[in-house]
Design a protein around this nucleic acid. Structure first.
Lengths: 200, 200, 200, 200
DNA sequence: CATGAATGAGTCTTCATTCAT
DNA sequence: TATGAATGAAGACTCATTCAT
């Protein structure tokens, strides 16, 4: 029976190598070596190099989305949910630096089918933000004129740009968590009605 | 000048091809064909394929930064400067879709030296935002606790994520300009002191 | 016997797969699957893929030669033996289409040792023709100047080219048996002395 | 401009290597070495290894068919045309041993598109025989009951089996030309009406 | 300056074969 | 005996780069 542990070792190795060199500069043989399997073994578990990258997203992405969901469910106040998202996202980036790097770098890469796949999980992730915004609008805290489709992307983009800075920049000037706090602070002030300004 | 024209033609061609296929899937021969020069000719103007990508950023990036500077100089109010940045950025993306795609996709690519280069122009571009923030803080409109290093990245990231959505997504639900307005609206409310809320 | 059954199943499977895809495009795993055994099991019965092909010839070839011998022994007249060979050969091709295809295609393949092996059985088969010719010459029906070494190959080649046509061609214009009759008719007229023309 | 001489050198080299090792056991690098070009150069002239084999047939096949046509046109008597075909075919095999080997071995190989291509030329070649037979029937020399579709294949098969023997067999017992004569002698006697037996 | 034919290093992928269970 | 996961050697093909013209 194919060994699940071996599959995981390959994904782990690919995670490191892709993060370090980028997808196109990574060699299957290098991943194999790092995973301590033969080159051919990788092809028992993955159809191709592309498939390995996709599977990696699939595997790790599912965990991330699920963790974020759990974290946000614990929070009731929709505005606090937004803050929770920010902190968790940056925190996740800190803890999964390699994955974050790959998402930063390769998520933007071209091959169509990959974009399509990744999108599903990504949209699910993004919608955790818009759900909170909708809720906030329903209970009258968040301004009606906010379009959640724009705001969710803007918020995610803001956080992710910080993540990128943190991941790629050699000098770590800003602590991810405090960045998350400042960014959610700015956003929340930007989203909510004037009368709630002092509450958050 | 003859030469400059040919160099420009190559850059234009590279712009299209890189945007369409991504850097690693683009062939020098394809760029040469589109530019109507011989493959070898490209190497008279650029040291390597990498150098072509860098030069492309250099060439186009200078124009973009310069345009943005001009646009922002016309505006005096620092808060309005921020809004101006947003509108101009999304506008630029709309007008230079290929370049935007490349920046979205390849800017994230890994090869170290490229990241370093790109950073210079990029930092200059980003600092147009932080300069406005500093100014706003100086004249007492923007809250003191805002860290411009975080805010500039967050703001840029927010805009850029919308740009990415617009550039990559087949369905164009959101108009770039109106997105720019909503995003700057959110940010500005998030940045300024409470007492100025009604002013902007 | 259990083992023999498994060995036979592998040979049958190989027969089908080799015929369908050709030796070099056939995979051991595909043969194993068709034979409903594990890949490794094949190596318990055959030393290598090459050996499997050889064994296949050996196994099936023995049957064919033996059948042909029996059929020809029943006929006394050496000239009729020739006709019998023709009819039986084409008939065999019709009944063992896969084997025929493999012989047509792979018998010609290069690896030296295979050619050598196959030759033994093949020569035995061919000699059934030359034996009949010799006999015909001994009893004065077949012309003395006929060189049996040439005639046997020519006759076999003629039949086999028809077999090839039948095996490979999608449109089945000529019925194998009637072809066999015409070809042996031509040959017999070509081999026998003038005075026997009306006899056959 | 791509060098026609270089293309020919590659075909020549492929001819030798394919003949020696068979298509599947031949390496592009080996052909390149023998042709004194770089591996990649082969791909400037041929789309793939398959294409190289096809082009080889195309290139050499055209010459062979054309030569045979010329040779047969010189002969008026349709029966003598048949003999001419035999002698020329075996002669060609003698002179183009490598090509003959490849045709013997690879013509039978599987990939469909190749069989289809080769067929066109092959049918043209075969029809030189059936044309002569038809002519012979028209002028009343060849028996009416002969089906040219069968006879042409039988005759070709007979000659080709001898060619195979000569090409593959280490011991060269039979001289190709004298084989050709005996085979055409047998066939012609088999084809013509009794009253013409003494004429040929 | 311009060309584009030639180069050849580089890598993914396949698949016959092995061997621990 | 039987299995099938693992191996790793092997090779077709690509394409950035060079250089003779």
């Amino acid at each position: 029976m194919k060994n699940e542990d071996k599959k995981k070792r390959i994904i782990e190795a690919a995670l490191t190598v892709f993060a370090e060199k980028g997808f196109y500069n990574s060699k299957i043989s290098e991943i194999a070596e790092k995973a301590e399997v033969a080159d051919g073994t990788i092809y028992l578990y993955f159809k191709s190099k592309d498939d390995l990258l996709i599977s990696l997203f699939e595997y790790e992405g599912a965990i991330i989305v699920s963790n974020m969901k759990k974290a946000m469910e614990k929070v009731k106040d929709p505005v606090e949910k937004i803050r929770t998202f920010a902190i968790n996202h940056l925190n996740m980036v800190t803890k999964n630096r390699n994955l974050a790097t790959i998402i930063q770098v390769e998520l933007r890469q071209s091959s169509k089918f990959m974009k399509e796949y990744v999108n599903k999980k990504f949209v699910e992730y993004l919608n955790l933000i818009s759900d909170a915004i909708h809720e906030g609008q329903k209970i009258g805290i968040i301004r009606e004129e906010i379009k959640s489709g724009i705001a969710k992307r803007a918020f995610f983009g803001a956080l992710d740009e910080m993540a990128r800075y943190w991941v790629l920049s050699p000098s770590k000037k800003y602590n991810p968590i405090s960045s998350a706090k400042q960014i959610s602070d700015i956003f929340i002030r930007g989203l909510i009605k004037e009368e709630y300004l002092n509450k958050y």
